[in-house]
């Protein structure tokens, strides 16, 4: 058994979990979302095993580095972080129905890693600049941040599908109360903001120890700053301007678009120092 087997099986298990969640939604069967949760947890364990396995393999190949060093590995880790965050939320708030908005994200990220021809799943050695514990801290915290924003994005979508009328027969009528959606979205943004903050900071400390500059305005850095500013705006609008609901959900969606751009767009469209992630 090797890591690529574990990780590709993870992809299918996450796909199955999404199917269950969506099914529970479409057919209004609570039992299906319960099954979805179980499958998601299994996928998560598989995902964890895959990451650990890959770490071990990199040592066996003599490169010996944590598996957070390229696009493929970071996407796998992204799925993992979103999964762990979502499992935590469902566990704490016992609202299984919201999984329908998050499980597809978990699946899509890992599927993209496996099927995109541009991302290589080969384990390759690290360049000298990337050998740093700060870098590991940087990648982990950034991805926890991104995961928070991804889950917040999933929750924000609920504002646009939940019917206003509580008597509605729509399949979205069962969604949690507006208050709870609001609270959950905010909690996830807060989580994401804290970790993105730490992520940017550890990145700056790393850059300072590798190159003697903590901030260079390279496109990736700048875009993570833009993302950070958008979520700072989100929090100020909520706290000091009293925004809530749909209008705030738009900001969360814009923020997540910025996350995606920081993550993919910068790599493919703009040039800079960060060769990956």
């Amino acid at each position: 058994m090797n890591s690529s087997f574990l990780l590709s099986s993870t992809t299918f298990i996450y796909a199955l979990a999404s199917v269950f969640y969506i099914g529970s939604f479409a057919f209004k069967k609570q039992i299906l979302s319960k099954a979805g949760f179980v499958v998601l947890v299994i996928g998560f364990l598989d995902n964890t095993a895959g990451i650990i396995m890959r770490w071990v393999e990199s040592y066996q190949m003599g490169y010996g580095h944590a598996p957070f060093s390229n696009m493929y590995e970071s996407l796998i880790f992204f799925s993992w972080t979103v999964a762990v965050l979502y499992i935590f939320v469902e566990f704490k708030y016992k609202e299984s129905i919201i999984g329908v908005f998050v499980s597809p994200l978990i699946f899509l990220a890992i599927a993209y890693a496996s099927f995109d021809p541009n991302t290589s799943s080969k384990i390759s050695p690290l360049l000298p600049a990337l050998k740093s514990n700060w870098l590991i801290a940087h990648v982990i915290t950034c991805f926890l941040g991104y995961a928070g924003f991804a889950v917040a994005f999933g929750f924000s979508i609920m504002y646009f599908v939940k019917p206003r009328n509580p008597q509605s027969e729509s399949m979205f009528a069962k969604l949690p109360s507006w208050e709870l959606i609001d609270e959950l979205t905010y909690q996830m943004v807060v989580f994401g903001f804290l970790f993105l903050t730490i992520g940017i900071i550890t990145g700056a400390v790393w850059a300072n120890s590798a190159w003697g500059k903590y901030w260079t305005w390279d496109p990736k850095e700048t875009w993570s700053l833009i993302t950070w500013l958008i979520y700072a705006i989100f929090m100020h609008l909520r706290i000091i301007r009293g925004w809530s609901g749909k209008s705030l959900a738009y900001i969360s969606i814009i923020g997540f678009v910025a996350v995606l751009f920081t993550y993919f767009g910068v790599n493919y469209l703009l040039s800079g120092l960060h060769s990956y992630a």
Partner: peptide, 15 residues
């Protein structure tokens, strides 16, 4: 809020 929005928007130019 306006300043933060302006900072975010103009930062894009430099990228």
């Amino acid at each position: 809020v306006y300043t933060l929005v302006l900072l975010a928007l103009t930062s894009i130019i430099g990228t």
